[in-house]
Write a protein that binds this DNA or RNA. Sequence first.
DNA 1: CCAAAAGTGTTCGCTCTACACCCATGG
DNA 2: CCATGGGTGTAGAGCGAACACTTTTGG
Lengths: 220, 220
Amino acid sequence: MFDAQAHAQASVTAEIVIFTIRGDRLAVLLWRREREPFAGCWGLPGGRVRPDEDLEHAATRQLAEKTGITGVYLEQLYTFGDPARDPRGRAIAVSYYALVPYNRLLMARRSEALAWHCVDALPELAFDHARIIALAQQRLCAKLEYSTIALQFMPDKFTLSELQVVYEGILGEPLDKRNFRKRVQGLRCIEDTGEQFRAGNHRPAKLFRLKTPGRVEIIR
Amino acid sequence: MFDAQAHAQASVTAEIVIFTIRGDRLAVLLWRREREPFAGCWGLPGGRVRPDEDLEHAATRQLAEKTGITGVYLEQLYTFGDPARDPRGRAIAVSYYALVPYNRLLMARRSEALAWHCVDALPELAFDHARIIALAQQRLCAKLEYSTIALQFMPDKFTLSELQVVYEGILGEPLDKRNFRKRVQGLRCIEDTGEQFRAGNHRPAKLFRLKTPGRVEIIR
DNA sequence: CCAAAAGTGTTCGCTCTACACCCATGG
DNA sequence: CCATGGGTGTAGAGCGAACACTTTTGG
């Protein structure tokens, strides 16, 4: 192993920014800390990377252990290593972000300590987690423009109006319905299921599905 | 400090992919390893992050110590943490990439152990460094499209033809001269110095400079 | 028949692309 | 005067933005 004297070894954690669309707004799943430091404060779900574990595996595991969520889109975001970011000592945070379909808000592992917070009304956050969330939001917003990442928020079947709400929730601005439909149908990533969705006193909507569910395409 | 028993602490290194344009091709600066593992093999310049040092500081320092290069564009790339990536034990590599103007190929710290290698003719590389370089190249190529990052390869004064060679070297394909000039001048990031550059039996070229040297703009 | 959301095409302006010739200089 | 790279404009195509009415359903 390495010589621990010459260079202090660091604690490495995986921290996960878990996004969903709640109602019509982008939200993140936060975890209320019980222990010091920042006891009682909200922070990102996350924890130590195990000695023989890949970083992405650690992120997937933290996601599953803390929230019960599995099988969702996950991508590495950035690594934070300011020596002062953790008062206990040197801690490297490898951050990830995950996108959760909005029909999975009911978590397997319900907990008082977990709650969704709208990104434009966040509480005080532990460590540098506010900065991590801000960066994740920025990245997500940028990826909307040149990839099909937003489709990862959708359940198995969804309507085009629902998809439009997702785009609008992330971008924070309204989109033109006709142009939006032309664009997403032009991506050739979704297909009509033939089924319809009735919801109220109005014309039913066609239900669509992803052609290749897990896949995120780079476009343009 | 953290409990070192419960979770083994990891060695954290900063590894730097240093790009330049040599001739008309994209090249990376590699370092011939003297010690095991991978002795005699080429690898990325890099080394341990110090106990009280920010990650970006570590990358800047490694760059300066190993190559003498300072004051260049540097950006975090990705963090690699496969438990098997270093045969000595757990090692987290926070990778960065740097862009060096091509008139700085003469390094302050010349060394037999350092050499530029064209990205499409790389030798066998230590650890997972081939993968790191491939990712850096992909990122650089993507950033050409939506930012002014290529200007970071330019010296204080440069001609539009030189700039075009840089774009072509990164993209690996020829560009139309007139369209290229229209595009880069439309960015409003460079200005005519009024000076000229004479180089041979032909019309001299106008010299341009960056309006705001360190700045990289996101475009489109 | 009324309210509510679903669904659908066309026009215009702009941007991107393709393309060829004259200019300034050194030898 | 010849060779060499520097410098310049225009036309056509494709793409994105703006914009309003008809359809289907439940009550």
